[in-house]
Design a protein around this nucleic acid. Sequence first.
DNA 1: CGGTGTGAAAGTTTTCACAGCG
DNA 2: CGCTGTGAAAACTTTCACACCG
Lengths: 226, 226
Amino acid sequence: MTDSRPLQPGEIPSDATVPKVVVSRISLYLRELQRLQAAGQQTISSSQLGTLLGFSDAQVRKDLGFFGQFGYPGVGYRCEELISAMRDILGTNHAWPVVMLGVGNLGQALLGYRGFGRQNFSIEAAFDADPAKVGQVIQGVRVHPLDELPAIVKSRGIRLGMIVVPAERAQEAADRLVSAGIEGIVNFAPVTLTLPPHVQSVSVDLAIELEQLSFAVTSQLAKASL
Amino acid sequence: MTDSRPLQPGEIPSDATVPKVVVSRISLYLRELQRLQAAGQQTISSSQLGTLLGFSDAQVRKDLGFFGQFGYPGVGYRCEELISAMRDILGTNHAWPVVMLGVGNLGQALLGYRGFGRQNFSIEAAFDADPAKVGQVIQGVRVHPLDELPAIVKSRGIRLGMIVVPAERAQEAADRLVSAGIEGIVNFAPVTLTLPPHVQSVSVDLAIELEQLSFAVTSQLAKASL
DNA sequence: CGGTGTGAAAGTTTTCACAGCG
DNA sequence: CGCTGTGAAAACTTTCACACCG
């Protein structure tokens, strides 16, 4: 590592490019640490944390090593400190207002999902093309017409959006988010979006998750019969 | 590759272990192919398919190579054939009945999600601890008390389950699924489950998806300022 | 030709193993 | 002593490049 002291709040990780898979494990570490801290645990070693998540101790240490030095030899990591460091890394020590496009079944359920707040995300406004939905307040969130998107994004400084519209309308929704100035998109529609390179995205396709499971279950069976 | 002809329906992929990331790309290829086929396209080359999804042509060919030979030199792949081959690979050429544990906001939305059927999954029965929910029929799916789980799983030959209960109850739900004989679990609760090695799982944590995006957006910014 | 299938090379990620620290 | 941080080795994945095919 370039630097020999823990990351300062707001410090930008060195320019060494961090693999995506490392970042996703950081999220898992953070989730587990928050649970442990809530249970009163003060410190944790890389091997304890790894065991809880099914990773090796070395992997936990290497992953953290991408971002700085957080541990105490002979002791491990202080939960509170490490949690805060990870939130700095992930950028969730500050609030992230989010817009949602599409207020169908799934969208309404996500409006009511309590888990976002825990990591500092809050859905600020929802948008739908259906005039019957516009004006409603669902789970405390107002549904706006689509043409209000740019103004709301701008005035509230919103950088992230969620696409929860049907597949056929997802690209159009993405285009609207991009031209409103959104920088990151979570896409729940089962299509690949075309986005300019400065806009980040992650996708959640529920049918694909089941397919992965179908494959794993089927090939597990094959393995067992060898 | 061991074998020199396309995979026969039901044929088990060679014992060479296939990386998970390859399987997840197979799902993306399949999703894209289904879209292309619906639009009337007959054949596709590895480079066309790769371009649509942001992968190289070589990667598409290598991925398919794990499972057999499906292409025609000078032509590419026949969409219909490749779709069927991929469904054999993933195990979705036959129907997969699924049980769901937890019928809250998110669970109800998933009951109404149309995208599962497209890949041959169908939620057969739902379960909830809340007596007020038991007996209801939501989106055509009946909600049962938890103690009926083992009998329904057994009698309907169900192998997959979804956990859509709050975090605190997720491990208990997993234990119930395991002892009912379920072989694969999709977990929507934000906790790491402890499962016996013969039970497969995939996890979807909505807050973690947003965290990944928060990191990507933040570090994109860092990159731009170099 | 235009395209696949595939060894070999390059690049990336994980694991190992151990010096060093409190 | 117990545990971190980290180079070096091993394992794995992607890209390259080309023989071969219709």
